[in-house]
Design a binder for these strands. Structure first.
Length: 639
RNA sequence: GCCGAUGUAGCUCAGAUGGUAGAGCGCGUCCUUGGUAAGGACGAGGUCACGGGUUCAAGUCCCGUCAUUGGCUCCA
């Protein structure tokens, strides 16, 4: 049979040759590193014989597929350990995930706690040393049902029910047998380092109404060194946690007494926030957006009209009642209903469209308590919202313009790597959505074409659209490679309908405009939370709350420091003076930990020459320059 | 909302088996007036999240509430 390699070369092998044998024929090293083999479009066990002409690639730790095989096998190993330590445990599912694997289990009466993880880890180490082979076995549905019925494992039984006879396989290793389609490592000894992390509850099959199982998360590696690096990375992430840095750098606070999920912006945070807003406003103004400001409450009827009350009313902050009239007002959960009312304030001609209405609007949503997370998930937050009212024909162009803004913003903030997700409707399930086929086709096409034109790296998800229109979401990767969902662009046919929005067309007839909702940052809170973690608190100069700090060598030079401060302040450079009674080394350390981009050290020499000694955050001493020179260069940097 | 963990000074954390609270950092005062990542001395800070209960006695044990946190579910 002919085996085609990823580089296109073809080599002949005997029928029944396994992936491992093919790897060996290439190099000893590859055979050692191989974890699985991709045969055509499936991943197979290395030991599984190949009988037909195939395209193959050998998967190692470097491949995502290789890691998946590795972690899937690790999940089985953990299951074996669990069964040994907690006999009678029933098993749900145990898949690999982006960083490791988990297994959902039901230990019945036996309670499993954090402390047991150590024991399980030890058991896993013991088991992997046994070098048990992972053995694949085809089994009939009847046999499979019989096996798991006897084992009294109703979860596996349920999974089998949904499979067709003839496609059921078991994997055995050591003392553990699992219903599993594989693939797996040749044997357990590939796993060299084990770490179990956490116990969590997880609903069986993700269904809130079903039993909650115990989920154990773990990660394994083929080398101890890789585990050490991973743990180090986790520590780094912890250091960058926006909740920790947000407190230390006095960006925001949360007070139990004010309410959970309600971040309060401190002066340093306000500077960052206002700078970002200023930048986006400028960008929007150039593109013809107009700013509006709506109140943060609105009558309940407004949200009944918009449909939000019906859908979210009972899970929202409940209505505010007026003292006498018996009217009910709600905290606004979205800005769009207000903006629709603004649109209706006067009749519109097609000549005015697109109308781009922007507001940094603060909204309140009663997020579930378990979801709250610093700035990243809050109950009160400010969207960098805008609604574009346009004709269907203008949709694509407007979409492109929005994508353009998002790109510019992300680049400006140093997120070079970002991707997008196109969410379309499920054409087999049209009743879930509102709007005509024609409108959907037009708007989906507009998004797809806009994405293609911008050459965005996008995935398409069918059935993920909102009920009122398709959308495009943007994801960025932060400095540690973590994905965050940020900006969103959504097409909406629903609200124009509900609010009966119209414009007069060229034909002198009334037409329905289309609305685009868009928020490039998503929310100021979420975005700044991400920015904190991405930058580790080392904000770019233009956003840094304190841009320059003057460090006098001793208090003899405080007067000179004040003079410098005045010059910098006149140039709108955010400057402070460390007039504490400390030595220069200490002042530098404090400024460094305070993440101030520039330190100006001034003493006898500097005062005599009208200069400053510049020290840059993280890079150190840049030498002595004239004050004017420094102001020039920093102003240039800020351009 | 659900499962697990946690809640002690502004921050980070110690406080076996119940006997009336401690460190480092920060803060204040004083000494020191210094040249590129921590100068020194002294001092002030705590209803041990809150509410009940057990006990002669609770930071410590039990119950409840609130909050934080790791997940799950949800996310206009």
């Amino acid at each position: 049979m002919n085996i085609t390699f990823p580089d296109g070369s073809v080599k002949e092998f005997d029928k029944g040759t396994s992936g491992l044998e093919i790897a060996k024929s290439i190099s000893h090293r590859l055979a050692k590193e191989a974890l699985g083999i991709k045969v055509n479009n499936d991943i197979w066990d290395l030991h599984r014989p190949i009988h037909e002409d195939s395209f193959i690639s050998i998967l190692t730790w470097e491949d995502k597929g290789g890691k998946m095989v590795f972690w899937h096998s690790s999940a089985h190993l953990m299951a074996e350990a669990i069964e040994a330590v907690f006999p009678g445990t029933k098993f749900g599912i145990g898949p690999p995930i982006d960083n490791g694997f988990y297994y959902d289990i039901d230990t019945g009466e036996q309670e499993i706690t954090q402390a047991d993880l150590i024991q399980l880890e030890n058991k896993m180490r013991e088991l992997l040393a046994e070098k048990s082979q992972y053995i694949r076995e085809d089994i009939s549905k009847k046999e499979a049902v019989a096996y798991f019925t006897e084992k009294n494992d109703e979860y596996k039984q349920e999974l089998i029910e949904e499979l067709d006879d003839g496609e059921i396989t078991l994997y055995k290793h050591g003392n553990f047998v699992d219903l599993c389609k594989g693939p797996h490592l040749p044997n357990t000894s590939y796993i060299k380092a084990v770490k179990l992390f956490a116990i969590a509850g997880a609903y069986w099959r993700g269904d809130e109404k079903r039993k909650q199982l115990t989920r154990i998360y773990g990660i394994t590696f083929p080398k101890q060194k890789l585990l050490d690096e991973y743990l180090l990375m986790l520590e780094e992430a912890k250091k960058r946690d926006h909740r920790k840095l947000g407190r230390e750098l006095e960006i925001f606070m949360i007070s139990d007494k004010v309410g959970s999920g309600l971040p309060i912006w401190l002066p340093n945070g306000v500077i960052i926030r206002e700078k970002l807003i200023e930048y986006l406003k400028k960008e929007q103004k150039q593109r013809g957006y107009v700013q509006v400001i709506a109140p943060i409450i609105g009558k309940k009827e407004l949200y009944i009209t918009s449909g939000h009350y019906e859908k979210y009313g009972s899970d929202s902050f409940q209505p505010i009642k007026t003292p006498s009239e018996g009217e009910e007002y709600m905290l606004k959960p979205m800005n769009c209903p207000h903006h629709c009312e603004i649109y209706k304030n006067k009749p519109h001609s097609y000549r005015e469209l697109p109308l781009k209405m922007a507001e940094f609007g603060t909204v309140y949503r009663y997020e579930q308590s378990g979801e709250l997370n610093g700035l990243v998930r809050a109950r009160g937050f400010t969207q960098d919202d805008a609604h574009i009212f346009c004709t269907p024909d203008q949709l694509k162009e407007e979409f492109l313009d929005v994508v353009d803004i998002i790109e510019i913003l992300f680049r400006k903030l140093g997120f070079e790597e970002f991707s997008a997700q196109i969410s379309l409707r499920d054409p087999n399930n049209k009743e879930k959505y509102i709007g005509t086929d024609e409108a959907w086709e037009k708007s989906e096409l507009a998004i797809i074409e806009a994405v293609a034109e911008k050459e965005l790296n996008a995935v398409t998800e069918i059935g993920e659209a909102a009920f009122y229109g398709p959308k495009l979401d943007f994801m960025v990767k932060d400095a540690l490679g973590r994905q965050w969902q940020l900006g969103t662009v959504q097409v909406d046919y629903n609200l124009p309908e509900r609010f009966d929005l119209t414009y007069i067309g060229e034909d002198n007839q009334k037409h329905r405009p289309v609305m685009i909702h868009r928020a490039p940052f998503g929310s100021m809170e979420r975005f700044i939370g991400l920015l904190i973690e991405h930058s580790g608190g080392d904000f770019p100069l233009w956003l840094a709350p304190r841009q320059v700090i003057i460090l006098p060598i001793s208090d003899k030079y405080i007067n000179y420091a004040k003079k410098i401060w005045k010059s910098l302040d006149n140039n709108e450079i955010r400057t402070s003076i460390d007039d504490s009674n400390e030595k220069i080394g200490r002042k530098i350390r404090d400024a460094e930990l305070g993440k101030v981009p520039y330190m100006l050290i001034v003493g006898e020499k500097e005062e005599a020459e009208g200069s400053v000694s510049v020290r840059k955050r993280k890079s150190g001493d840049l030498g002595q320059v004239k004050l004017d020179e420094f102001i020039n260069s920093i102003s240039k940097e800020l351009n």
